[in-house]
């Protein structure tokens, strides 16, 4: 039985390490400015460009892939969380950004509620594994009791990062 626990922990530690590598002060913002869905996604992509995670030349291609995925089905899930994501060969490896908009905005969420926490993830088209793992892990963490409130209450970027 101990092995089950060890495995879980090991898996979790592995993911935790990845999350902290992905979410750094440069890729997390406290106050998103955009007022609509497309604007929010573009703002998050620009954060990745500024942080040097994706090249300026790849901006349009990344934006297109995320919007295409968004057209199939909204990534605004429930309880104010949205995870826009896409796959594109314009990125060499999985990149992610996190943004908060406290007043919330309409992201066509499944429950019709305004979305407040946005996590963008983009990974190479041919690669399986990290992409889904990241989506699963981030939504698992965000479904933990009190986690969303802690992110919304955070006063600094570092405070948010310390939660992961």
């Amino acid at each position: 039985m101990t092995r089950r626990a060890d495995y879980g922990q090991y898996h979790f530690m592995l993911m935790k390490m990845n999350l902290q590598k992905l979410l750094t002060p440069e890729t997390v913002v406290l106050d998103l400015e955009a007022t609509d869905k497309e604007g929010i996604i573009a703002e998050l992509v620009d954060i990745l460009v500024r942080a040097g995670r994706i090249s300026a030349a790849a901006r349009e291609e990344v934006l297109r892939s995320v919007m295409e995925r968004e057209r199939k089905m909204s990534t605004g899930i429930e309880h104010g969380v949205a995870i826009p994501h896409g796959k594109s060969d314009a990125v060499p490896e999985l990149v992610a950004a996190l943004g908060v908009k406290r007043e919330g905005l309409d992201f066509d969420a499944l429950d019709g509620q305004p979305s407040r926490i946005f996590i963008l993830a983009v990974s190479p088209a041919d690669r399986s594994g990290p992409h889904i793992q990241f989506l699963a892990e981030i939504s698992r963490l965000l479904s933990e009791p009190g986690m969303q409130q802690k992110i919304l209450d955070a006063r600094s970027v570092e405070e948010i990062i310390s939660l992961f």
Partner: peptide, 10 residues
């Protein structure tokens, strides 16, 4: 329940 997220996303 612990691993529902990954299955649902896939």
């Amino acid at each position: 329940a612990r691993y529902q997220h990954i299955a649902r996303f896939i």
